[in-house]
């Protein structure tokens, strides 16, 4: 078996949590040889101005996404269903938090 050397590192997507209690937010992508290097690079690229307390990295190949061609079937059916919004209903006074 010949050893194949790839000359470009794979792409990773980076998610940063700004502070405790908030969710991780996608901030960008970077290239790295493996997950550990990706975490190092993410720390150096995306948290240099004190933006984060936690980082996730995910191989971009592992992200499944909806395609532009699916847009109509995926999203438009929900456009006319206002009753799915919680504001559609009158909230009883006995329910303080919703």
């Amino acid at each position: 078996m010949t050893e194949q050397i790839r000359h470009e590192w794979p792409l990773f997507e980076v998610f940063v949590r700004a502070k405790r209690g908030l969710n991780h937010v996608h901030v960008g992508s970077l290239r790295a040889a493996d997950h550990r290097m990706a975490l190092h690079h993410a720390r150096d690229l995306y948290t240099r101005r004190n933006e984060g307390v936690s980082i996730w990295v995910v191989r971009s190949d592992d992200v499944a996404s909806s395609g532009p061609g699916d847009k109509e079937a995926f999203f438009e059916p929900s456009a006319d269903k206002a009753y799915r919004h919680p504001t559609y209903y009158a909230i009883p006074d006995s329910v303080p938090h919703i």
């Binding site: 940063v16 700004a18 937010v25 996608h26 901030v27 960008g28 101005r49 004190n50 933006e51 984060g52």
Partner: peptide, 19 residues
């Protein structure tokens, strides 16, 4: 903190001393 712009949410500080 705004959630409309993800990156702005991360950098939304009024702390010019960082620059």
């Amino acid at each position: 903190m705004s959630f409309d712009d993800a990156y702005q949410a991360l950098t939304d500080h009024d702390d010019d001393a960082r620059w």
